[in-house]
Amino acid sequence: MPYITTKDDTRIYYKDWGNPNGQPIVFSHGWPLNSDNFENQMFFLGQQGYRTIAHDRRGHGRSSQPWFGHDMDTYADDLLVLFEHLDLKNVMMVGHSTGGGEVIRFCARHGTSRVSKAVLIDAVPPHLVLSPNSPHGIPLAVFDNIRASMLKNRAQLFLDIPSGPFFNYNLPNVTASQGLIESWHSQGLMCGFKAAYDCIKAFSETDFTADMKKLKIPVLLLHGTADQMVPIDASARQGIKLLKYGTLKEYPGAPHGTPNILIDEVNADLLAFAKK
């Protein structure tokens, strides 16, 4: 399996699919998942002639499980190593949930000389936790409770999330997929405990407001209006106001896991944006 090694000797696993000469599309996954969660999109776009690349964030999936570095700056720095290792240019970046924060921080921290456009799917920016600057955010106590639940019984928590709010299976008239629940659970348990614990702070408390204001590339925001994990009023509907060249598309009634639930719609929107 292919790996890169970062400056602190963390090994990062990545996939490199599709046409090696095609335009690269780089995917950043959400918490506490890994690159497997984007396989439908990678396979589809690879079939369309694109080069599709996704990594397992440090501490997640098949990557190393270091004690340190579970913050947005380090995530962005790790991703830069991958860009440089593969000499990627004219990249379309795609980030889901936490991965959307990673995309925004990467572009703000390292510039967009290698990036032509970006897509944020159900993503955490600009600032997920409730604060004076984020009046529609989620109270910090909610994230404290997630951390407490991890310490008590991580295995059960990582069943409860996909069985409930991640895919909206806790709502009436929504048919659950046991396969999706088990896939989420298995990916989550592959994540190192420290990485999963620390990443909760990274995705919830990082303020991406200044980062989003810096961007001068086209950014497409895709977000479900019934997202219980990253409510659209706290994220995409605020983020679109900060982007110079932003476009927001809302999926009515859709949950947080739109890449898994609305596969055809998300794939079509990614392809259309890539072709622009």
Score class of each variant (00 low, 15 high):
Leu221Gly: 01
Ala210Arg: 03
Leu221Asp: 08
His223Cys: 04
Ile217Val: 02
His223Leu: 00
Val219Arg: 05
Ala202Ile: 04
Pro218Val: 01
Ala195Met: 08
Val219Thr: 00
Lys213Ile: 01
Ala210His: 13
His223Gly: 07
Phe203Gly: 06
Leu215Lys: 04
Gly192Leu: 10
Asp207Gln: 06
Met190Phe: 04
Ile217Arg: 09
Ala202Arg: 12
Tyr197Arg: 09
Thr225Pro: 07
Phe193Gln: 11
Gly192Ser: 07
Glu205Phe: 14
Leu221Ala: 01
Leu221Gln: 07
Val219Gln: 00
Leu221Ser: 04
Asp207Met: 02
Leu221Val: 09
Met190Asn: 11
Phe208Tyr: 13
Asp198Ser: 11
Lys194Ile: 12
Asp207Phe: 02
Ala196Arg: 09
Leu215Met: 12
Cys199Arg: 15
Ser204Tyr: 01
Met190Tyr: 03
Ala195Glu: 08
Pro218Gly: 07
Leu189Tyr: 03
Lys201Met: 13
Leu189Phe: 06
Lys194Asp: 11
Ala210Pro: 06
Lys213Trp: 02
Ala202Ser: 15
Asp198Ala: 10
Thr225Gly: 08
Phe203Leu: 05
Met212Asn: 07
Thr225Asp: 03
Asp198Phe: 07
Asp211Glu: 11
Lys216Pro: 09
His223Asn: 01
Ile217Thr: 05
Val219Ser: 05
Asp211Gly: 06
Phe193Ser: 08
Leu220Glu: 01
Leu220Ile: 02
Leu189Ile: 04
Gly192Ile: 13
Cys191Tyr: 01
Ala195Asp: 05
Lys214Asn: 15
Asp207Ala: 05
Phe208Thr: 07
Val219Tyr: 00
Leu215Ser: 10
Ala196Asn: 09
Glu205Lys: 11
Thr206Tyr: 11
Pro218Ile: 03
Leu220Cys: 03
Gly192Gln: 07
Leu215Asp: 03
Gly192Cys: 12
Gly224Thr: 07
Leu189Lys: 10
Leu215Thr: 12
Lys194Arg: 15
Lys214Ile: 11
Leu215Trp: 08
Lys201Leu: 12
Lys213His: 11
Lys216Leu: 08
Lys214Met: 15
Lys216Cys: 10
Gly224Cys: 00
Lys194Met: 11
Thr225Arg: 03
Thr206Ile: 08
Asp211Lys: 08
Asp198Arg: 10
Leu222Ile: 05
Cys199Glu: 15
Pro218Ser: 07
Ala210Asn: 11
Leu222Gln: 08
Met190Asp: 14
Cys199Met: 15
Leu220Ala: 04
Tyr197Glu: 11
Cys199Pro: 08
Cys199Asp: 15
Ile217His: 10
Lys213Pro: 10
Ser204Thr: 09
Phe203Ile: 02
Glu205Met: 14
Lys201Thr: 15
Ala196Met: 10
Ile200Leu: 09
Cys191Gln: 08
Leu222Glu: 05
Phe203Val: 09
Leu189Thr: 02
Thr206Cys: 06
Asp198Trp: 10
Lys214His: 11
Thr225Val: 04
Tyr197Met: 14
Phe203Asp: 00
